[in-house]
C-alpha cells in the first residue's frame, strides 16, 4: 500500500508536538518557508501567508456537506480570488470546526490552536450551548476567556453572533443573542450579528434537519463572513 502523504507532510503523533507542531500546523496546500514569525511565512508564489483560524462547531466543520462546500473553504477561495490581489497576501483558512462543540470546548481548544499563531481569529461558537440549554452566564464566561486568550496572544478577533430557534422561548432567545452583542462591545471586537443571516429558518438553504446549512446555505454564510472580514481586514 502506498503512503498517500507527500514527503513534506510527514504525519507526526501529537506527543511530539512541542517541537513539530508549528511545522505541521502550517502545512497545507502551501509550503512554509519559515515557521517562526507570522509575517515571515510565505507561499510558493512569494505572497506572505495570512492564516485565519475559525473556531467553530458543526456549521464550520461543514456537517452534512463536503469539505470543499463548507463555508471556510469557500471563504478561502473567495478571499484569494477577490481580496488577495489588493492586499498582496495569500489567505489560508484553518477550519477549527468540530461538530457538537460548545464554548467550553472552545476554551480547551483555543490554547492548542493559538500555538500556531494564526493571524486572525473568527469565533463562531455558541450554537450548541443554546441547543443544549447551557446557562448563558457560563457561555458568556467561556467566550470571554477565548477572546481574552486571543488578546493576550495579540491576535485580532471577530465574533460571530448566533441566534436560537424560536421554540426555545422568547426570553432565552433574546438573552442568548445579547450575549454576543455584550461581549463584542466589552472586548471591542467586530461582530457578525448573525452567522446564519438569511440562512436560519430558510428550508431552501438548509439540510433536511433544518439546523445545518446545505451547500447553498454555506455560500450565503461565506458571503456574510466575507463582507465582515473585508471590512475589518482592510
Amino acid at each position: 500500500m502506498t503512503n498517500p502523504t507527500p514527503p513534506n507532510r510527514r504525519k507526526t503523533p501529537l506527543l511530539s508536538l512541542g517541537v513539530s507542531f508549528l511545522l505541521l500546523f502550517a502545512c497545507g496546500e502551501s509550503k512554509p518557508t519559515e515557521t517562526n514569525g507570522r509575517n515571515a511565512r510565505q507561499t510558493e508564489n512569494q505572497l506572505p501567508l495570512f492564516r485565519i483560524l475559525i473556531l467553530g462547531d458543526s456549521l464550520t466543520e461543514g456537517y452534512g456537506v463536503s469539505e470543499s462546500e463548507a463555508y471556510p473553504s469557500l471563504l478561502e477561495k473567495k478571499l484569494n480570488k477577490e481580496l488577495s490581489p489588493k492586499t498582496k497576501v495569500h489567505y489560508k483558512i484553518v477550519n477549527g470546526g468540530i461538530s457538537g462543540a460548545t464554548t467550553s470546548g472552545g476554551v480547551s481548544r483555543i490554547e492548542w490552536f493559538l500555538q500556531s499563531k494564526p493571524d486572525y481569529l473568527l469565533v463562531a461558537l455558541g450554537g450548541n450551548d443554546g441547543l443544549r440549554g447551557i446557562s448563558l452566564d457560563e457561555m458568556k464566561k467561556n467566550i470571554d476567556r477565548i477572546l481574552q486568550a486571543a488578546k493576550e496572544n495579540d491576535i485580532p478577533v471577530m465574533l460571530a453572533g448566533m441566534k436560537i430557534p424560536p421554540n426555545y422561548g422568547p426570553e432565552y432567545s433574546l438573552a442568548f443573542t445579547q450575549v454576543f452583542e455584550k461581549l463584542a462591545h466589552v472586548h471591542e471586537v467586530p461582530l457578525i450579528p448573525f452567522l446564519l443571516e438569511g440562512v436560519g429558518g430558510n428550508p431552501k438553504l438548509n439540510l433536511p434537519d433544518r439546523i445545518h446549512p446545505n451547500p447553498l446555505g454555506h455560500q450565503a454564510i461565506c458571503q456574510t463572513v466575507y463582507k465582515s472580514l473585508v471590512a475589518n481586514l482592510n
Partner: peptide, 8 residues
C-alpha cells in the same frame, strides 16, 4: 486530523 494536525 485532530485539532488541525494530520495523523497517519
Amino acid at each position: 486530523e485532530v485539532g488541525g494536525v494530520p495523523i497517519l
